[in-house]
């Protein structure tokens, strides 16, 4: 479900794998994703979108039952601009799931040369069905 949000589909992204707390996603280079017209580098917001989607997918795949999740925070280090014309791939790992919170780490790379573009750490809120008292 996390793999098919309207926004991620709109920017041409796809979650290619999500299993046991690990997820992989990919996004193709496209002209309308450019953030710097002089260099053709993709906008940071596209990388943020990839990482948020990917981290969410990793969390969902780590849960025993599907639960609503929401990003609490996301911190990104931009190591290197994405290469013009190259697809970006990302992977994320859910490190820990508690009753309320899930902790995730992720990264994004140029598909062609595997150079790391960005690293991220994120925390997600989990919404478990509330225990009802009569």
């Amino acid at each position: 479900m996390v793999g098919v949000t309207p926004w991620f589909a709109a920017i041409g992204g796809e979650v290619v794998m999500a299993r046991d707390g690990q997820a992989k996603a990919r996004i193709s280079w496209r002209e309308d994703l450019i953030g710097d017209p002089k260099t053709g580098v993709i906008h940071g917001g596209v990388i943020t979108s990839l990482l948020d989607q990917l981290c969410g997918a990793a969390v969902m795949s780590a849960l025993n039952q599907p639960l609503p999740i929401a990003t609490l925070d996301l911190r990104i280090d931009y190591l290197k601009p994405a290469a013009k014309g190259m697809a970006i791939v990302g992977e994320a790992e859910c490190l820990k799931v508690t009753h309320e919170i899930a902790f995730v780490r992720g990264s994004a790379h140029n598909e062609a040369d595997q150079e790391v573009i960005a690293l991220c750490t994120a925390a997600f809120m989990l919404t478990r069905p509330e225990a009802r008292t009569a």
Binding site: T5, W7, F8, I11, H43, G45, T48, S49, L74
Partner: peptide
């Protein structure tokens, strides 16, 4: 816009959309 949605059930904007506007 509909394309900005991350969670169609609520509905809610995608976290990446929020990040993109803030970064811009």
């Amino acid at each position: 816009a509909q394309k900005l949605i991350g969670n169609p059930l609520l509905p809610a904007l995608h976290g990446g959309v929020i990040g993109a506007l803030l970064e811009t």
